[in-house]
Amino acid sequence: MAVTNNYQQADTGTKMIHIGKNTRSTIISKGISAGHGQNTYRGLVRIAKSAVGARNYSQCDSLLLGAQCGAHTFPTLEVGNTTATVEHEASTSKIGEDQLFYLRQRGLSTEDAVGMIVNGFCKQVFNELPLEFAVEAHKLMNISLEGSVG
C-alpha cells in the first residue's frame, strides 16, 4: 500500500520469484494519490523453469483524489514454463463528486466521507493485518490525507 500527497512521488513495487513446484502467490497493491502526488507501481513476477504448475495472481488498484495526481502501473511477467498460471489485474478509480455528495447528504463531513471511501478502498489489505496494526494503519491513512480535499 502506498499513499502520496502534496508533491510526493512514490515508486514502489513487489518482486515475486517462483522456483519450487506448485508454488502460489498473491500480490495486492493499493495506491492512493492525492494533491499533486504520483504513485508508481512496478511489479516483477518471475516463474523459473523449475516452477512447474506455479500460480500467481496480482491485483493493482489505484485511487485518485483530485485532478492533479496520477497513478502508473508497470507490471513485468517472466514466465519460464508452460504449466504456470499468471494473472494480472489493474484498476484506477477516482473519488467522484457523486460519492462525496452522497455521503455528505447523509450528514458526514467531507473529510469523514473521504476517509470512509479511502478505507473502503484499502479494506482488502487492512483485513489481512493484525488488528492492532490495522487500527494504526487506518489512523495513519486519515492523517496522511488530512486537508487533501475541499
Partner: peptide, 22 residues
C-alpha cells in the same frame, strides 16, 4: 450539504451511489 442533512433534510437518490469496501 452535511449541515442540511444533520438538520433533517434527506434526499433519496434517483441513482444511489456505490461505495466499495464500506
Amino acid at each position: 450539504p452535511e449541515e442540511r442533512a444533520r438538520e433533517g433534510v434527506f434526499l433519496a437518490f434517483q441513482y444511489p451511489v456505490e461505495i466499495p469496501g464500506v
